[in-house]
Write a protein that binds this DNA or RNA. Sequence first.
DNA 1: GTCTCTCCTCTTGTATACTAGTAACCAAGA
DNA 2: TCTTGGTTACTAGTATACAAGAGGAGAGAC
Lengths: 241, 241
Amino acid sequence: MALINENAARRSGPAVREIYDALRHRILTADLMPGTGMSEVPYSEQFGVSRTPVREVFRRLADEGLLRIVPQVGTFVAPIQLRAVYDSQFVRETLECRTVTLAAANAGGRARDDLEDFLTLQRRAIRDSDLQRFFDADDKMHTYLIGVAGYPSIWELIQGVKAQLDRVRYLSLESGDWLNRIFEQHELIVKRVIEGDATGAETAMREHLQSVFLTIERLANNKPELFEGSLGPHVSNASKS
Amino acid sequence: MALINENAARRSGPAVREIYDALRHRILTADLMPGTGMSEVPYSEQFGVSRTPVREVFRRLADEGLLRIVPQVGTFVAPIQLRAVYDSQFVRETLECRTVTLAAANAGGRARDDLEDFLTLQRRAIRDSDLQRFFDADDKMHTYLIGVAGYPSIWELIQGVKAQLDRVRYLSLESGDWLNRIFEQHELIVKRVIEGDATGAETAMREHLQSVFLTIERLANNKPELFEGSLGPHVSNASKS
DNA sequence: GTCTCTCCTCTTGTATACTAGTAACCAAGA
DNA sequence: TCTTGGTTACTAGTATACAAGAGGAGAGAC
């Protein structure tokens, strides 16, 4: 699994790494829509390599829940499973709320400067309406906070889980005002971390992450064809053995 | 990563699945010690298959942090990285403490019966000194509690993270009295979940998981040659960009 | 004795050929 | 018209062959 080791596919040959990054990005940004057929041969031709590295990439993306490999039939872009999205949100929220608490306890003067730099980056990205750059700066800030908490490597794990959330985020194509609201939430988080207000930071982080989650539920209601599984909240399931 | 989709290697051909299970178990139980060389050819002969499925298994285990693939050189059983162990513990503790809180809120009459069944299984395993059976029942109970909380699929994620902890657990070869202590902790958790005492259940779970952690530090002190990286606790790292 | 260069062997990375299973299509019959 | 049978095309799974790099052993020079 992704924790522990540096980056997932980055250890392999250059072909694998490149193809992995490209395909993952195309899936997350919904350039490849859920359900799209993905058989190995066309992509090996497209990237100018043999089936082997493409196959390795497919396998890895399937492990991440982004592809679905059906033996002897084909490989398809996985539908967005609402259950998986809910679970991913739960994991991310639980871990990041805990780490931001620790971050607030740990943050020193240097962290203050660094965090303000991240906010500046985001402010500029909004000014230039550069969504990708904003998302990058967003990710970097979350990564940084987890590092300040003392557990930098778990960002890798969150990254994997977050893939499901990002897919929805890109699909919902949000703009303008929404970015400002996210940014204000970031400001509040940073403020409380710098102040050392652990409880307040946790609250701010939870509200932040949950507001992103609202986007998801809105999309699930508007475009149910992209999803698989019911929308209902989890029910206590005490009947399993 | 591993969340979202059912089991990791279970989707592949029978060869891959079988080899994956076998090798993973051998690594976790320290039958294959950290540092052992693992080149592809001998194992393909041993399992009577070609390099391809073995290679796929190696890559998957490398993703889990159990193998380390060095291109053009060889593949080795990964050393136990203390940092990774600490991080794994953090993730598991954070997630399971949260889920047990929810479980305590959700648990109904059926859960009560099921949980008591799990305890009975464990009691018998201890009576028979059957370590493997105890570990299995242990895992099943944790899985069940996460299911009651409403997020059954995140057990997959914890499972992956837990691999690092399990390696240490098997290496330290604990016995007798230790099992009883674990069992008592389980009893306390179950008791509080059934009572609906969310806070109490969380506390019990945290103490339970952290006690496993003590084992780790003991082993790290006794057999440092199996480990890689320093033993010190995490330090706030606010210097990263 | 020691250092260096070369070559050989072993490793993983990649390409290609072969196997086997699925599904869709089409035709023949009721 | 519907059903059923077989044929065909396509898929992923596996085996094997080849390429490229790392590392160690051994020979030679100093």
